[in-house]
Computed example of a mutant assay.
Amino acid sequence: MAQEPQGANGGTELGRFLRARRAQVTPEHAGIGVGPGWRRTPGLRREELAALAGVSVDYYIRLERGKEHRPSHAVIDALAAALRLDANERGHLFAIATRATSMLPKPSVVPDECRPAPGTDLLLERLRPYPARVLSRTLDLLACNPGGLRTLPGIEDWPVQRRNVIRYVFLHPAARALFPDWKLMTSGCVARLRAVAGREPDAPDVTELVAELATASTDFAWLWDRYEVRPFTGTSKTLHHPQVGTMTLTVQAMQIEGTAGHRLVTYLAEPGTPDHDALVLLDR
């Protein structure tokens, strides 16, 4: 029987998700009485989660260890309820469980899929002075106009192939000062990358980026192990820019048709406002 791809850190994606989320649910939160004394397990024990979900301990252990590949819809639904998952997390669990059941390999991204769509340069030019950039599904910076580059101060000093928003947020020394909501930004970046890894755990660009960041950033490694999948859904962004000062901008993002998950991200400000004046300065 074909085996589910093992992903970047060993084990199956379904098993990693279950382990990470189990560690974050306390017995008290799950309504389980706990006697006095110290618990070695930070969250629920395997047997506790199995009991809450109505499955045998042996079956649940096989799920975590990747030995069981065909969990039923009812089992996954029961586990989602026991883990107190929200709508995004529940959807992600069902997606990776479905993939484990189907055993269908996911195609890796080929070089042509990393190229911006035809007409991208013209679109980015037309959007000036508003900063705009085209990002891959793993947030590689594929194309941008002047403002789109300069709203990430210092990234222009990196080689083109290393220009990635997630890498910038975690590893560039300017990022913490640039983003006043840096912690929220980091969790959103990791959640987006987690969603991609759930669909394509063996994609080389995903596994290489995860391995690099997990080694270089303890913040990334901690967030990655928590396995949060809530996307950042903010519609505005405040930047403390070293050249033009503080700006609060409206953010619009949209998928680009005919690409492998490319998105166009644009920052906007009302003409005549200080924020718009700052964008004009960055565009020069």
Rank of each mutant, 00 (worst) to 15 (best):
G31S: 06
F17A: 02
A50N: 09
L18A: 02
L14E: 05
L79D: 11
V25K: 01
A50H: 04
K67R: 15
G66T: 11
P36Y: 13
T26C: 00
A82L: 12
L44T: 14
R62L: 02
A20C: 00
I76C: 11
R62H: 01
A81Q: 14
R22D: 01
T26S: 13
A80R: 08
A50M: 04
A30C: 09
I76S: 08
Y60T: 02
F17V: 03
P42I: 12
A81V: 15
L44W: 04
T41D: 10
G66E: 11
L44I: 14
R90A: 05
E89N: 01
T41R: 07
L18D: 01
E68C: 10
P71C: 04
A50R: 04
S56W: 03
G54E: 08
L85D: 12
A53G: 06
E47H: 12
E68H: 13
E47N: 13
P27F: 00
R84F: 13
A80P: 12
G66F: 05
T12N: 03
P42Q: 08
A81E: 15
R90S: 05
A74K: 15
A51N: 07
R84G: 09
G10L: 02
L83Y: 08
G35A: 12
G43I: 10
L14M: 06
D86Y: 01
L18N: 01
R65A: 07
G15V: 04
I61V: 14
N9W: 10
G66M: 07
V55D: 10
S72K: 12
P42V: 07
S72N: 11
R21F: 01
H69Q: 15
P27N: 00
R39M: 10
T12Q: 03
D58A: 06
N88K: 02
R46C: 08
A80F: 04
L49M: 06
V75D: 08
L79K: 07
S56K: 09
D86M: 02
E28I: 08
N9V: 14
P42Y: 09
R16L: 05
A20I: 00
E89G: 08
R19L: 01
R62Y: 06
A8Y: 06
G31W: 10
P36D: 14
E68I: 08
T26N: 00
A80I: 09
A82K: 12
R45A: 09
S56L: 03
A78K: 13
A74V: 15
A30K: 07
N88H: 14
V57E: 12
L85A: 04
L14P: 03
G66R: 13
A30H: 13
R84N: 14
L79A: 05
G33H: 07
S72Q: 12
V55G: 05
L18S: 00
H69W: 09
D86W: 02
A82R: 14
Y59P: 07
E64Y: 03
G37M: 12
H73D: 15
L52F: 08
H73V: 15
L49E: 06
R22T: 00
A8G: 05
D77L: 13
R70G: 15
